[in-house]
């Protein structure tokens, strides 16, 4: 029972990470309609920024903000100087550009930090576990879930309650309306991409004390985020959040019975949903 409860908490924490990653992808998909193949690299960037800031003595909160900002800034540059110049052309060129960018980012990280990877002990106040009487709850997991939930709520507030957010929403739902609102669509796409990238970076930062990081560790996260987006995000910005949490919990619970199968489980769920779920192509969705 304790084990199950612990795994559920663990799953919630991991699931929140997936949700943060997938929500970022979902925003980018909605605005630019490209699969962001640099999302994993941006995740790694977030992790390393968080690591670097922590090692030079910055408080963990600052390190997390740095993780978000660093990745967001990179995202800003990628969109403004890359994708924005490739519109009106081939879809494949945009995707290849993101692929090339991912390679470059990963390799630069290897160049700076080497291939061995890094890890971080969570700050003292987040370390250890709380005794709930019937189980021990690692504090960092709770923190992880809370920060994930908090950032999702923040994005929700940003999109639903602010002017720039409503433009982003309009950009996703009806592109032509944005011009009527008097907002430059180019700026909007750049900001949207930066926001999505920042969320990948934030996920990387949060995940660092939990999973460690190396230059390519974002790719697994990216693959899972893609799956989460497909499962939950068909047409909805927030469906990805629910799917992310669901996948996280399901995966965590599987580790109780078959630890090595837990990642595979994600793909099994995806396959089942794709097979029995709504069908595409001719409107049967």
């Amino acid at each position: 029972m304790n084990l199950v409860a612990a795994q559920i908490v663990n799953g919630l924490a991991i699931g929140m990470l997936y949700a943060v990653m997938a929500l970022g992808l979902s925003i980018i998909k909605g605005l630019l309609n490209v699969p962001n193949f640099a999302h994993g690299a941006l995740f790694a960037v977030g992790a390393y920024v968080c690591y670097t800031l922590s090692t030079i003595g910055a408080p963990f909160a600052v390190a997390l903000i740095g993780a978000f900002s660093g990745a967001a800034l990179l995202g800003f540059l990628i969109e403004r100087f890359g994708i924005a110049n490739l519109t009106g052309g081939s879809y494949l060129l945009q995707v290849l550009f993101l692929f090339g960018t991912a390679l470059v980012i990963e390799q630069i990280l290897v160049l700076i930090y080497g291939t061995t990877g890094v890890s971080l002990v969570p700050p003292a106040m987040l370390g250890g576990a709380m005794d709930l009487g019937f189980m021990f709850l690692p504090r960092y997991l709770v923190f992880c879930a809370l920060v994930g939930a908090f950032s999702i709520v923040a994005v929700w507030l940003l999109i639903e309650k602010t002017r720039i957010g409503s433009s982003i929403r309009a950009g996703i739902e009806r592109r032509e309306m944005v011009q009527c609102l008097g907002i430059d669509i180019g700026t909007l796409l750049t900001l949207g991409f930066a926001l999505g990238a920042g969320m990948a970076g934030l996920a990387g930062g949060i995940a660092l004390p939990l999973l460690g990081a190396n230059a390519t560790s974002g790719n697994d996260m990216m693959a899972i985020a893609f799956v989460v987006l497909v499962l939950g995000g068909l047409g909805s910005l927030y469906g990805a959040v629910a799917a992310g949490i669901l996948i996280g919990v399901a995966q965590s619970l599987t580790t109780l019975v078959a630890p090595s199968a837990s990642t595979l489980l994600i793909y099994v769920i995806m396959t089942v949903v794709l097979l029995i779920g709504p069908k595409g192509l001719f409107g049967e969705r």
Binding site: G82, G88, S90, L92, L93, F97, T101, Q107, L111
Partner: peptide, 30 residues
């Protein structure tokens, strides 16, 4: 040894060159 970095840069370079160069490819994919 860090050749993958050069290769990534090359991909980015080519993507931007193709944009202007192989117009036909462009139109087709568009």
């Amino acid at each position: 040894a860090q050749w993958a970095l050069l290769f990534g840069l090359f991909i980015i370079f080519v993507v931007f060159t193709l944009r202007g160069g192989l117009i036909e490819l462009f139109k087709r994919v568009a």
